[in-house]
Nucleic acid binder design. Structure first.
Lengths: 161, 161
DNA sequence: CCCTGTCTTCAGAAATTTCTGAACGTTCGC
DNA sequence: GCGAACGTTCAGAAATTTCTGAAGACAGGG
């Protein structure tokens, strides 16, 4: 266990890395806040104060991260504020969704294949199509294997209370 | 086989889709130009005229796409211009490299795990770490399987001359 | 050794993205 | 129903990214 400052720095570093990978800045920071929080859920106000940004920014960031399937809204009785929680299967969901953008690319490539006659261009496009189609097929298999593996090691090692 | 206009439109559509997936605009357009060209290689001048942009833009775009491992420089005797060609293993290379940014994320997460004590945050971070480590391991296996499968179907079906 | 054709670099313009703050809905407790 | 507490939206400011055009660098032929 280390200090609060170090925790925040690690969170910001992870957020920065995610930005480097193409994620939007505020969404990445929000996600990191969830990851590094000891709370089960966070409210919009929590996020605003943790990140030092306006309510408007939080609203936008939360919507984006929720749409990615990483967090979900939770209704807590007796609290007027909306709470958010990281979803259990966040990462596998994210991976699967990323592969639905692969599907988008695949469609565009397919149109390309139809638009050219036999020749070099067609060969290249078909190669690209084949690889992306392969990935699209294999992604769910991979996720299943991970989850099976994880369930197994949880059973052996026991989960945290 | 269809018209030149349709070919260009399909190319631009694919480029647009790639931009939507996070690729830079000019890089995506250059890549599409390669994919849809009947030529084996293209020069910077070819790209500039095909895309209708300045030499400076082409220089930047080509550098980026080359750095992604999708195209390579080719020296052609008797031509002063530099030629570029899509690499044969472009897509598998791209996939592999994308997984080296996964490695970057993994490192950042690992730092996070070290920065928090036992508790919810640590559980979340460890889960994330496990999934990304799993992906990093499996990516090369996937690529190998694709290449084996492709080699097999080439052997059976015969490759284009 | 110079000259020409080609590529790269870079400062600034243009376009795009991102964030904010204030106004506007909405919902819940009373 | 009323009022207060929250959340959302949106116009515009700020920051960032992207593109260009011109100037410079480099290589090879003559």
């Amino acid at each position: 266990m280390t200090g609060e400052t170090e925790r925040r720095e690690a969170a910001e570093r992870l957020a920065l890395t995610l930005v480097g990978v193409g994620m939007q800045r505020m969404g990445a920071r929000a996600l990191a806040a969830f990851l590094f929080s000891e709370q089960e859920t966070l409210t919009a106000a929590d996020l605003a104060s943790e990140l030092g940004v306006s309510a408007g920014s939080v609203s936008g960031a939360v919507r984006m991260v929720a749409q990615m399937g990483l967090i979900e809204r939770v209704h807590v009785a007796g609290s007027r504020r909306e709470h958010f929680r990281m979803r259990d299967n966040a990462w596998t969901t994210l991976y699967t969704r990323q592969h639905s953008v692969v599907d988008e690319v695949l469609r565009a490539v397919d149109e390309g294949v139809d638009a050219v006659g036999a020749g070099r261009a067609r060969d290249r496009l078909e190669y690209m199509r084949d690889f992306y189609a392969f990935l699209l097929n294999e992604a769910p298999v991979l996720v299943e294997r991970f989850e099976a593996q994880r369930a197994e090691s949880q059973r052996r090692g026991g989960s945290r209370p």
